[in-house]
Write a protein that binds this DNA or RNA. Structure first.
Lengths: 237, 237
DNA sequence: AAACATCATATATATGACTTTAATATAATC
DNA sequence: GATTATATTAAAGTCATATATATGATGTTT
């Protein structure tokens, strides 16, 4: 049995995801141009040496993320970039692997500056008792790790802190950012913050404002965090 | 005869999308509980009376939106709510059809208040010459429609105006909001704004600030718009 | 020239066989 | 008895192929 296309064999996830990722790579790198018709199902099946089932599931995945659109007789077309759902964690994961990380990281920071202050304000107003307990426990962990520093533990706690804020807004539209944040943190681990860059003071301000139910103060504290943070830009892999 | 037309019209989309929508409905309404294992492929195929191909494509669609997760031997599990990607236009479309619109609309407004001011600020700074031309042409259309009012035309132009701002940020993460906005506008058409609620003055301020490259002014103008707008809450269908 | 019928082709759906994965139970080992 | 191999097995994953359906292109009728 000759594996003609071992290019995919390295990955571990299911076949159709691997294929989807490979097609996504070609789209994101513009190797497949926007609005272009990609090769027919049969052609792609032969190229990847997979069944139509697997290929079609891959295409469905990409269609759902706004990258493709299929029509009978016409074929499957690459949608224009403004349809790509960059707030999809899986797609974001692929983007990070394939494009200029420095630019992505800067764009992400600009997103955080819009979202997080309002999220903190909403959390201050709407967090449930249970969520406040979780937030409290997480902040205390951050405080402890700040004093007994461990990089991985800090990253995990920092991420959990901001995740909880999103969840505490009580707003469905803020939920996806928790996953986007997780994806970004995991990808840029080692670039985001180091000892001395924990900004524990700013985090404490956010925490206290939320617990006190002071929306305006929570908003401002989060703005301060994003401005004061030693937000290192990632180096190229 | 005309009755069968309606049936056909009601089931317009492809089979796997219809099935996905139906499963999504059960998940969103919590008829299928979070973390619950849904019936096996074979069972569902019999229930819906469809092939495994169609069912599996439906499940792939929902998996991509964060609603499901499949594992061999275990089955397919409903993921917890904080994994649902509410910023996916298609999912949002389904959500709007199935849940309390008033609550969704309010949550959406809270999202706009976070996103749009920053988007306007970024657009003021980064919009390309081409984008400024498009924005200019769109605003002039808005101005005209304001004086020769036509509801549908206004809605379309209003939507296009805000869409162009998102596109003009030069930030990939802001792109998806354009589609989310479109979905919301289309769904809440008739509820969003009426004659006298065009807020042409506030829109003009945003437009001018962006054209002048004044980020702070653009941000503030958009805040003013969202605060002053006669943002009617939708009535129940 | 407009309406209609036909054809070609790409995706959409269906079906059945086979493979891989992983939870669970069972047996072998210490 | 506790631990560690091993077999069982149920579920999704993959494959191959056949048929249905939709649509752009072409031709035909009026």
């Amino acid at each position: 049995m000759s594996h003609s296309f071992l290019q995919i064999a390295g990955s571990k996830r299911s076949l159709h995801v691997q294929v989807a990722r490979e097609i996504a790579r070609k789209i994101l790198s513009e190797e497949l141009a926007q609005n272009e018709i990609i090769p027919s199902e049969m052609t792609l099946c032969e190229q990847f040496n997979i069944s139509r089932t697997a290929l079609r599931e891959a295409i469905k995945l990409l269609t759902s993320k706004g990258l493709l659109e299929s029509k009978p007789k016409v074929g499957t077309r690459v949608k224009s970039r403004d349809n790509w759902n960059f707030l999809d964690s899986q797609l974001l994961d692929w983007v990070i692997d394939l494009s200029d990380n420095e630019a992505i990281y800067k764009e992400f920071l600009a997103l955080r500056k819009a979202i997080e202050p309002e999220a903190a304000a909403l959390a201050a107003e709407y967090a449930t008792a249970e969520q406040r307990i979780l937030l409290s426990s997480t902040f205390q962990k951050m405080d402890y790790i700040h004093n007994h520093f461990n990089f991985e533990e800090w990253t995990e706690a920092d991420m959990e802190f901001h995740r909880l804020i999103f969840l505490s807004t009580g707003n469905s539209f803020y939920l996806p950012f928790a996953n986007v944040l997780r994806t970004m943190f995991k990808s840029f681990i080692g670039h985001s913050s180091e000892k001395g860059g924990t900004c524990i003071k700013e985090h404490r301000e956010i925490y206290r404002a939320i617990m006190a139910g002071d929306a305006n103060k929570a908003r401002q504290a989060n703005i301060d965090l994003l401005n004061n943070s030693n937000h290192r830009l990632p180096t190229r892999n």
